[in-house]
Design a protein around this nucleic acid. Structure first.
Lengths: 218, 218
DNA sequence: ATTATAATCAAATACGGGTTTGATTGTTCG
DNA sequence: CGAACAATCAAACCCGTATTTGATTATAAT
């Protein structure tokens, strides 16, 4: 039925990896299908065999990136036998190290999100089937992104309830935390003073300090 | 020599404001000169009377935004009679409130920065005069942006030196702080549960808690 | 008034890039 | 083998958009 990937043929995943890199370098609009295709030794036309269009391709990049990081953080978040402080520290480390290891996806998650957010679906006219599918996938992506945020919220909430953490405004604290993380994906450069682990360690230190109960002073 | 702005004529500043809004809605590449022009009841061609080209226009938007926020934060940072903790709290508030008051510029400062960063100046060929000017302005913008970050670094450094704050990795702490701020410009929506002041208050609370000296416990 | 220039627009230009089409080649399965 | 389909490309299509050009009008300075 289907042919097995031969020497010359390029897998969907390879395209996604290459596309993420091109997106990081250029941004969505500036990244041409030709650029992305060239990164895997294809022509632009060939990409349309794998993806319906450019939008779908970018969405697939974001989906893959989110799935990957979710897969790594979800187990940590759900390991409720571990104290919240330790879980949170591990989640922070995993997230930041993940972002620094794959800066392409890290930057895409920050910058290209807006391309999705501001997506101009034709208003007034009825949506074509393709457009409906795309809108649904986009919505699903954002839902999954909310779930990701909830992982952090829950751990913080649990820490507060258990008395490990002082009470904070959980939504705001979480957005503060994730904003700091995302920004790492923007400024991080390999060969800097610190590697991902070093940045993660310090970041976790600061946020856990912010959550620490105020011991009676004296 | 020059005519006074008449009823019909549009000022450079009005264009910048409108452009910021269009940029926020659509992003740099998706925002057309026609869109921006329409926002001030002009044609695309007329914009070229005010700005050399699209790149220059966007850079001017960012410059104006950065100048505005710098102007508000610099005096606070330099008021060294005030304790570092209070100064930092005020700077955080000013920054976040500023971002929430002008979400257009706030989002542009996050998203369009990359457009500048990844700017493809023709390599190999000699740069034209225009390109040289643009490159210089872009560099100046980033330098000014570094200065902005330094305002925060210095206050934190001073707080550590004076013993108000515990020792932290100042560059990382600052990037963490500013990342959280920038992210506010992305997720903030008017009519949410909290206004800018509420978000600012909580954010400052968390970061100052992270800087608090650990009192001997017990 | 006359001149210079600020501010504007309509129309033309130039060109890049997303997408489609149609053909070709190989592979797998029955 | 032969049918079906996966994977690819060259070439064409189409359209949008940044930018230029040339003309027009209003204002300010002399």
């Amino acid at each position: 039925m289907a042919r097995k990937p031969a020497d010359q043929s390029v897998s969907r995943d390879e395209i996604l990896v290459a596309a993420a890199e091109v997106l990081q370098r250029n941004g969505y609009e500036a990244a041409t299908m030709k650029d992305i295709a060239a990164a895997v030794n294809l022509t632009a036309a060939s990409l349309y065999h794998h993806f319906r269009n450019k939008d779908t391709l970018m969405l697939a990049v974001l989906e893959a990136g989110l799935s990957h990081i979710m897969g790594r953080i979800e187990p940590i978040a759900h390991d409720t036998k571990v104290p919240s402080a330790i879980r949170l520290r591990r989640m922070i480390a995993e997230h930041i190290i993940g972002l620094t290891q794959n800066t392409a996806v890290g930057a895409a998650m920050v910058f290209e999100i807006r391309t999705l957010m501001t997506f101009r679906l034709p208003v007034g006219d009825a949506l074509s089937i393709q457009e409906q599918e795309f809108a649904a996938r986009r919505d699903a992506f954002f839902a999954r992104r909310d779930e990701f945020e909830l992982l952090f919220r829950h751990v913080i909430r649990q820490g507060i309830d258990s008395g490990e953490f002082r009470p904070v405004d959980v939504p705001i604290f979480t957005k503060t935390l994730l904003g700091a993380h995302n920004w790492v994906g923007v400024w991080y450069k390999p060969n800097g003073r610190l590697d991902g682990a070093g940045i993660a360690e310090r970041t976790a230190d600061y946020f856990l300090a912010a959550l620490r109960q105020n011991e009676p002073q004296g």
